[in-house]
Design a protein around this nucleic acid. Structure first.
Length: 286
DNA sequence: CCTAGAACCTGCGAGC
DNA sequence: TGCTCGCAGGTTCTAG
């Protein structure tokens, strides 16, 4: 499941293989993949044609390709199963190919958006003066952004009546964290996922943020190394199925710190993985 | 206004 | 063998 590090790897691949190329035409094979483009698939394709792609940017799990001289950008979200692939034009279509973008050059490659579960998609949006697409203005900066505001995040934790994992997944407070990295960072910080945020001390918040950054940087260095090769970098898969995880998916396996079998608990229609001993439940657990 | 939970979607694997 | 069901989960919408 693509979270910040995986999306960043894709962004680097796009920077290498798509930036500064001019779109010739786009083909939408599944309308759901452009549902966030309210003007529809035809409008999406027409607006892309003839524009040159600038340098790809990212915030959290969103990435976008600026279209030069249009004031707009192609916004991409991979959802849970989305991939952006560079493929040779003659390569057979993938089973779940949703969008194809061709370029007006002789490089022989095209950009493909492939998505089994169609939670992701592409859309075109106006950009603010700082380049941010208008529809993601509510998405907070991510923890790898130098301008991420640690104080504001801490104050939000203190103010809210919620629990820490919910807060980590709230993209308006901190972006880029999904279920996997939330569990990993909480395990590293020895914090239980259901701990109320209102009592967080500043050192606790800062320590947790440090672990979020550490686990993301580790994933980035593991998965972001191979973006020179066409098929192992923009494909949206390399590097994140084989990463080493300490918590996520390790139900019944010994905690790497204390040896206690790891637990899985149903949580918000998904799962939380944690160590009963290292990550003590809050006293007022319900 | 705030928070909790459901809905969206498809493939896979377990269980019967 | 073939069916059903649970599970995976980011975002958005709705209910309370």
């Amino acid at each position: 499941m693509p979270e910040l590090p995986e999306v960043e790897v894709v962004r680097r691949g796009l920077e290498r293989w798509v930036a500064h190329r001019t779109v010739s035409d786009a083909e939408v094979l599944h309308p759901r993949a452009v549902r966030r483009h309210v003007a529809g698939a035809e409008d999406f394709a027409r607006r892309l044609a003839g524009h040159r792609v600038g340098t790809p940017s990212r915030r959290g799990k969103y990435l976008w390709l600026p279209l030069e001289d249009s004031g707009q950008a192609i916004l991409a979200h991979l959802g849970m199963s989305g991939q952006l692939l560079m493929q040779l034009a003659e390569a057979p279509d993938e089973k779940h190919l949703r969008i194809r973008v061709r370029f007006a050059d002789d490089l022989g490659t095209e950009l493909r958006f492939v998505d089994q579960r169609t939670f992701g998609g592409l859309s075109l949006h106006d950009t603010a003066p700082d380049g941010l697409p208008d529809v993601i203005a509510h998405i907070a900066r991510d923890p790898l952004d130098p301008l991420f505001d640690e104080d504001a995040f801490h104050r939000a934790l203190r103010r809210k009546r919620t629990t820490i994992k919910r807060a980590l997944l709230d993209q308006s407070l901190i972006s880029g964290v999904g279920n996997i990295y939330a569990d990993e960072a909480l395990w590293r910080a020895r914090i239980h996922y259901d701990r109320p945020t209102s009592g967080f001390t500043r050192p606790r918040t800062l320590a947790l943020l440090g672990h979020v950054r550490d686990v993301m940087n580790a994933a980035l260095s593991a998965g972001g190394t191979s973006f020179d090769s066409l098929y192992v970098n923009v494909n949206g898969e390399s590097g994140w199925f084989d990463r080493s995880l300490d918590a996520y998916g390790r139900e019944g396996l010994p905690c790497r710190r204390c040896g206690t079998p790891m637990r899985r608990r149903p949580w918000m229609n998904r799962s939380s993985y944690f160590c009963l001993r290292c990550q003590r439940a809050p006293r007022v657990a319900s």
